[in-house]
Amino acid sequence: MALVEQNRNGENAARLSEARASDYIALLKPRVMSLVVFTGFVGLLVAPGHMNPVLAVIAILCIAVGAGASGALNMWYDADIDAVMKRTRNRPIPAGVVSREEVLVFGLVLSVFSVMTLGLFVNWLSGALLAFTIFFYVVIYTMWLKRSTPQNIVIGGAAGAFPPMIGWTAATGMVSWESVVLFLIIFLWTPPHFWALSLFTTNDYAAARIPMMPNVRGEASTRLQILVYTLIVAPVGVLPWVMGFAGPVYGVVSTALGLAFVAHAWQLWRAPSAEAALKRAKALFGFSLLYLFGLFAVLFCETLAQRAWTWIGI
């Protein structure tokens, strides 16, 4: 049986779908998903206690599919915006490969399956957190905040910050202060990361009528706010070591990365010209990725090393 779609131009004629499996994978935003999987896995690994490895794999898989479902539902709602922006105009819906209705059903089915599977096999608290994350990203961020306030990614950033907390909850069955700290690191990292991106894609966001900070408050204000957020996130990034659930290597690396992050933000704030600001915004954006990946990678390696040493009895 062939999948028949309504013609996108509103004509009555139907057309057969030319969507390949890869188009559906693109709907899951694989690059975003990879970061979510990584941070979720680190949250699960760092958590105290032992978890059955099979159930741990199922938990990570559910977090990944839940994140993918959020991405698909985001593309379903934002199809009009995606068609306008250069960065997103080749996504499956604006490219005319998949219809919005198909994407809605795809996203909803994956959401239900990921939440139910996580709840049934791991625990219902992590299942509920995953459901809330999907709801927060799709309804609170995509449908409400994104088009209405320049604080959109400040509040909406919470959706991207939940995965390590879900990983932690999957392993322990409870939300603890350590998981809240992991949440805060990503939550506070999100504004400088996205505002740096928006500084060199201002026209794109303006064309799509999205009230990003540079369009609404101006570039100077955005650069100052980026600096303020990096000044907050840098010490918060060191907290896992201060609280004792990360070792000295993490302490040194997180301090160094935090100082470098602040230095990048300072240079951006003090940029002497628009051209220099553009260049420094790109540098800050690149470094912000390195910062977050670095923190979680060190946390991951250090925990793994500690477990290995304990296991071989050193």
Partner: peptide
Amino acid sequence: ISQSDKQKKAQRSRSV
């Protein structure tokens, strides 16, 4: 409705 080769390939990709 008859499928083109591209549509057949796409359908097979989705089915697999």
